[in-house]
Computed example of a mutant assay.
Amino acid sequence: MTSDADRRPGFELSDAQWREKLTPEEYAVLRQAGTERPFVGEYTDTKTTGEYHCRACDALLFTSTEKFESHCGWPSFFDPAESDAVILRPDDSLGMRRVEVLCANCHSHLGHVFEGEGYPTPTDQRYCINSISLRLVPAP
């Protein structure tokens, strides 16, 4: 995981191009750091084997191997597919301290990562990711 949020994205579009490429709902989450409602995302409960790519730029972010059931209302992963797939940055919005997760390739908002919640995962982390930020590519 890269913590260098100042790093330039490898995939860049103008705001107008992002608005054309994404639906209004995708744009609100991916480009404006919104959050979809809990328990409504298409990948919250899926158990399909495959890869989860960024819906904005198609970069590989997570795999089904790292996905686990946290019952929090959003898809949860204990680690990204590759260590440099995401960027982590402090998020002090909403009057609380959190860590935002961004796609390292296009800097789109994915969700947040939490630690120390006691889940029985190898990393003790929960990447709480908006389904609308992802596109599942099922394994062949």
Score class of each variant (00 low, 15 high):
Ala33Glu: 05
Gly116Phe: 06
Leu102Ala: 05
Met96Ser: 09
Arg98His: 10
Leu136Val: 09
Pro122Glu: 06
Thr48Cys: 04
Thr48Leu: 10
His109Trp: 10
Gly10Thr: 06
Ala5Pro: 02
Asp4Tyr: 02
Ala28Asp: 04
Phe11Val: 04
Val86Leu: 14
Lys47Arg: 15
Arg126Lys: 14
Pro9Ile: 11
Arg37Cys: 02
Lys67Ala: 00
Tyr119His: 13
Gly41Gln: 02
Gly111Pro: 13
Leu88Met: 05
Ser108Ile: 01
Cys128Ala: 05
His107Asn: 14
Cys103Met: 10
Tyr127Cys: 03
Glu26Tyr: 08
Asp124Pro: 05
Gly95Arg: 00
Ser83Lys: 13
Gly10Lys: 10
Glu51Ile: 09
Thr23Leu: 04
Thr46His: 06
Thr49Glu: 05
Pro9Arg: 07
Ala139Gln: 12
Glu69Met: 01
Thr49Val: 12
His109Thr: 13
Ala56Ser: 13
Leu13Asn: 13
Pro38Val: 04
Phe11Met: 11
Leu94Tyr: 15
Tyr119Met: 01
Gly95Ala: 06
Thr49Met: 03
Val99Phe: 04
Tyr127Glu: 04
Arg31Ala: 14
Leu110Phe: 07
Glu69Val: 11
Trp18Cys: 02
Thr23Glu: 05
Glu69Ile: 06
Leu88Glu: 12
Pro24Trp: 13
Tyr43Trp: 11
Phe114Ser: 08
Arg7Met: 11
Arg7Ala: 12
Leu13Lys: 14
Thr48Trp: 10
Val86Ala: 04
Glu117Met: 03
Gly118Thr: 10
Ala59Ser: 14
His107Val: 08
Tyr127Asn: 04
Gly10Cys: 03
Val113Gly: 15
Cys128Leu: 08
Pro80His: 01
Pro90His: 12
Gly118Ser: 03
Phe77Lys: 07
Pro24Asp: 03
Ala33Thr: 09
Cys106Gly: 02
Pro122Tyr: 05
Pro140Met: 06
Cys128Met: 03
Cys72Trp: 07
His71Thr: 02
Asp4Glu: 15
Gln32Phe: 10
Glu82Met: 03
Gly111Asp: 11
Gly95Leu: 04
Trp18Met: 01
Leu13Val: 08
Thr2Arg: 09
Gly118Trp: 01
Thr65Gln: 15
Tyr52Pro: 09
Thr63Leu: 04
Arg135Gly: 07
Thr44Arg: 14
Pro90Leu: 11
Ile132Lys: 03
Ile132Phe: 14
Ser83Tyr: 06
Tyr27Asp: 06
Thr65Cys: 10
Asp15Asn: 06
Ser64Thr: 07
Gly118Gln: 03
Gln125Ile: 02
Asp15Gln: 05
Thr49Trp: 02
Glu82Gln: 07
Pro122Leu: 00
Ala16Gln: 12
Arg126Cys: 14
His53Ser: 05
Pro38Ser: 00
Cys128Gly: 12
Ala33Gly: 02
Leu61Ser: 12
Leu60Ile: 05
Arg7Ile: 09
Arg8Thr: 15
Phe39Ser: 06
Val99Met: 12
Arg7His: 06
Gly95Tyr: 15
Arg97Trp: 04
Gln17Trp: 01
Ile87Arg: 01
Ser93Phe: 11
Ala85Tyr: 15
Ile87Glu: 02
Pro38Trp: 01
Asp6Val: 03
Ser64Ile: 06
Gln125Leu: 11
Gly73Thr: 10
Arg135Asn: 14
Tyr27Ala: 00
Leu22Val: 09
Val86Cys: 11
Arg31Gln: 11
Phe11Tyr: 14
His112Leu: 09
Val113Asn: 09
Arg98Lys: 09
His107Tyr: 01
Glu82Lys: 07
Glu82Cys: 01
